[in-house]
């Protein structure tokens, strides 16, 4: 059986700067994969390569069997939420989801269901520019998962969230994963990553330097260490 996310030798350069170097990845359906590393390590670039938003300079990647260069086909199997949720401030939450639903030929019942699922019913008819950070993130998630994608890529979805909003988002990620979606999530919130992820990859200077179950990664550095210690140890210098 093929993995939902597969990448071999993925490489991306921006002029002289090598942002991603020879990254191999495989993530199975129904699992949550954490992608961690320092700022500028190549997390966002890797996610953009997997989302087909950047051309790779080397290697290849497939999302649910679809090559990431097949951009049109990719839209059916992929959900992607960048760090700044792509929302239009002039619209209401309901209008935004209706807009997204029209591209998927979904009717309003799908929109209502998403608003209900992501706890946005009360704010559905308010303009997005009045939403809090947590609400924007939930609306972004609702938009990215509206078509029940096989793979969900989340770039820093926990940034700027209070503990309650973090819990809401991680619960939603768990629900999506339980439904069979493969989730790849990048974050600096290592405690949450350790809690929700089945596997974790650590990236530094564009290279995947370690990959394992969270507790195995932590134990590999020191029996009593946590994931944070492992990340610092493996990416330092």
């Amino acid at each position: 059986m093929t993995d939902a996310i597969e990448a071999e030798g993925l490489t991306k350069r921006f002029g002289d700067v090598v942002a991603v170097a020879d990254v191999d990845l495989s993530v199975s359906s129904g699992t949550v994969y954490g992608f961690v590393g320092p700022n500028g390590a190549g997390k966002t670039t890797t996610l953009q390569l997997l989302a087909g938003l950047l051309d790779a300079d080397g290697g290849s990647a497939r999302i649910d069997g679809t090559d990431t260069t097949q951009r049109r086909e990719l839209t059916d199997v992929l959900g992607y939420l960048p760090a700044e949720a792509p929302l239009y401030d002039e619209l209401t939450g309901r209008e935004q989801l209706r807009y997204a639903a029209q591209f998927r030929q979904l009717d309003d019942s799908g929109v209502d269901e998403a608003l209900e699922r992501y706890g946005l019913v009360d704010a559905a008819d308010r303009r997005i520019d009045g939403y809090s950070t947590g609400m924007r993130r939930r609306l972004g998630l609702a938009q990215a998962t509206l078509h029940d994608p096989a793979v969900l890529l989340l770039d820093e979805p926990l940034n700027g969230l209070d503990p309650q909003a973090t819990r809401t988002v991680t619960d939603l990620v768990a629900t999506v994963s339980d439904d069979g979606t493969a989730v790849l999530v990048s974050s600096h919130d290592l405690a949450t990553i350790e809690e929700i992820c089945d596997r974790v990859g650590i990236i530094a200077d564009g290279r995947l330097v370690a990959e394992d179950k969270p507790d195995e990664l932590a134990g590999g550095v020191d029996d009593r260490a946590d994931l944070e210690a492992a990340v610092i140890e493996l990416t330092d210098g």
Partner: peptide, 19 residues
């Protein structure tokens, strides 16, 4: 560049390049 289109990550992943 794709990133210069507002909401491009959403549009390109929902509707594709042409639309």
């Amino acid at each position: 560049a794709a990133r210069s289109v507002q909401g491009s990550s959403f549009l390109l992943r929902s509707a594709g390049l042409r639309p």
